[in-house]
Design a protein around this nucleic acid. Structure first.
Length: 565
RNA sequence: UGACCUAUAGUGUAAUGGUAGCACAACAGAUUCUGACUCUGUUUGUCUAGGUUCGAAUCCUGGUAGGUCAACCA
């Protein structure tokens, strides 16, 4: 379906299909979305999907005046906090989106919502109920059995008005009365069995303080908030699907024109990842992690500290698409997105995580050679740097095998390899301690091979990274694994809790030997340690002035994979 | 024993009654001063049974499987 209007983009998912057809049919002339978090926790990668969706649609439909609001759904003062408001704003901005002057709060609309509630009462469409919590659920019935009407259902308009005013003045105890919509106690949809629309909460609200003691419920405030902001397409997750009739009922009952349309999509699930706010809060409170921004957390702030870029997350959101079917996305796709970006832009550095000393026997004791190395083979414009080379160097312990397996082309007794950017060396002798552990290698270098080539054209298959012992910088390097060891939440066996599956190896700290140039790196700088993956300088921690590195993601390693087989 | 929603390669997602594509993953090969990257190629799919139609992933009916709903949470 090609649109004749050049301002209307080609739809790329089912939501945009709806929008485009609304535009083409003349049902809408513009597109206005919103991202409506409740400020009761930090945003996570699942929210990033929604943010990219809502702000992305506004951007794609800019030609017809597309806009996206940020709206805090702060209708429950007991759970919400300014700290969360601040972090949410920071995270949305960091992801690369902006709401201009359109940051709103459901609490901005309390007065309006209240007036509308009075209208509903006057229309005979809402009443004050005095059933207790237990009674309410008893009267509501079950999904298969209809409910029965509350004894307070048929109060007079005057009495309802008076009681609601009393509630509002704080003259009624919490839980003693609440305002319900009068819909249908026998509806097959439980949400329509006279749902609560206002309840008493004598809690301090983070924005309105003690001004109110009655607060609107989500199901009532949300459609009104959407309507007041001129939202055209109100996009939310699947669990609100059965609430849609109620959403529509509120707007219909109040006879409001130009109503927004609610559209639901499947929330993001990721393998090896638990996304519920409750669980994330628990991890923080029980100090299983360092905080909301622990690099292992699926929070936006955690991903940021880990070293993910906003563009990699946006790219991920685009790749996973949007649909209505429940699904679990393979976290490898997220890894791919950050690798793809960082491969192109991250400077290469050498670092040895598990060091083994190599002595170049035919290299003069005090001679230091400054070796030139390109910063990124993918991008020559990133220039070069100089690396010191001396008689003693560190190599990776698993880059040497005393008894090499077939197709092993790194260092072994008698074998020749290339030290990246530097020289060819041949292993002449293996030094062991009393227990028989290899503690040092004695090698000889080929002076003709400076720069990593050889005049006679002989080939070496293996190229090792290395760090000069005399110049090495020691620094902490953190390697991460999944916080939980199950792949999918549904893998958790019956009768067990996912908390039994914490992965004790989700954080491994290494004291690594790094080439001296890494000293100049700043927080959030991202590099690739050759063969070890992409790392980011931690934005909070450093040890003795030396940067601490978080590994964002490993490089693919077909050799390691083959060995496992 | 209810209502609503969903079902396309291993995973995610397109195809709006007209050639089932794309990405990731996997596999094979080429290349390589990162066993990375890159390049080439390959394998694998419309839940099921009917119906409508010249023609169905798409529309209809039944079945199966999964999800959501019984907060004065969002």
């Amino acid at each position: 379906m090609t649109s004749s209007n050049p301002a209307i983009p080609e739809p790329s998912n089912f939501i945009e299909n709806i929008i485009v057809s609304d535009l083409q049919s003349g049902k809408r002339t513009t597109v206005h979305t919103r991202f409506p978090p409740e400020p009761n926790g930090y945003l996570h990668i699942g929210h990033a999907k929604s943010i990219c969706l809502n702000f992305g649609i506004a951007k794609r439909f800019a030609g017809v005046g597309g806009q996206c609001n940020l709206r805090f759904d702060d209708t429950n003062p007991a759970k919400e906090d300014q700290e969360y408001v601040d972090s949410i704003q920071e995270d949305v901005h960091w992801l690369g989106f902006d709401w201009d002057d359109r940051c709103f709060y459901a609490s901005d609309y309390y007065d309006k919502c209240y007036e509308f509630a009075i209208q509903l009462i006057q229309k005979g469409k809402a009443y004050v109920c005095e059933l207790t919590g237990d009674q309410v659920s008893e009267y509501r019935g079950t999904p298969t059995a209809p409910g029965k009407p509350s004894p307070w259902r048929d109060r007079s308009v005057e009495e309802n008005l008076e009681l609601f005013a009393k509630m509002t003045r704080g003259e009624v105890e919490e839980g003693r009365m609440f305002l319900r919509a009068k819909i249908d106690m026998a509806s097959p949809n439980m949400n329509l069995r006279d749902p609560a629309i206002y309840r008493i909460k004598k809690a301090e609200h983070h924005r309105t303080g003690a001004k109110w003691v009655v607060y609107p419920m989500y199901d009532y405030a949300h459609p009104l908030g959407d309507w007041m902001e001129g939202i055209t397409h109100s996009i939310c997750t699947l669990e609100f699907e059965v609430h849609r009739p109620l959403y529509d009922w509120v707007l219909e009952a109040l006879e409001l024109p130009h109503r927004p349309q609610q559209i639901e999509f499947a929330r993001l699930n990721l393998t090896y990842t638990v996304m519920s706010k409750r669980m994330l809060l628990e991890l923080v409170q029980n100090k299983i992690v360092m905080g909301w921004d622990d690099p292992r957390m699926p929070t936006i702030s955690g991903l940021r500290r880990r070293g993910y870029t906003p563009s990699s997350i946006r790219s991920f959101a685009e790749k996973i698409g949007v649909a209505k079917a429940d699904s679990v996305v393979d976290i490898n796709l997220l890894y791919f997105c950050i690798r793809e970006e960082l491969n192109a832009v991250a400077p290469r550095r050498m670092g040895v995580l598990d060091p083994l000393k190599v002595v170049i026997a035919n290299w003069p004791a005090d001679k230091v050679d400054m070796i030139e190395a390109d910063n990124n083979p993918e991008d020559p414009t990133m220039g070069k740097r100089m690396i010191p080379f001396g008689r003693e160097i560190w190599i990776e312990r698993d880059d040497f095998m005393e008894v090499p397996v077939k197709k092993y082309f790194r260092l072994a007794p008698g074998a020749e390899v290339r030290l990246k950017h530097a020289y060819y060396i041949t292993c002449k002798e293996v030094v062991k301690d009393a227990q028989g552990n290899v503690v040092e290698l004695r090698c000889e270098y080929d002076p003709e091979s400076r720069g990593g080539g050889s005049p006679d054209g002989r080939k070496v298959k293996g190229t090792l990274h290395w760090v000069s012992v005399a110049h090495a910088l020691e620094a902490e390097v953190r390697l991460f694994d999944h916080l939980f060891s199950f792949e999918n939440l549904s893998d958790v066996p019956e009768g067990h809790d996912y908390k039994e599956f914490y992965n004790p190896n989700s954080l491994v700290r290494k004291q690594a030997k790094l080439e001296p140039s890494v000293k100049e790196l700043k927080p959030f700088d991202r590099i690739q340690f050759l063969r070890h993956g992409y790392f980011c300088v931690d934005s909070r921690d450093s040890k003795d002035g030396a940067p601490v590195f978080n590994r964002i993601v490993e490089l693919k390693d077909s050799w390691a994979k083959e060995q496992k087989k």
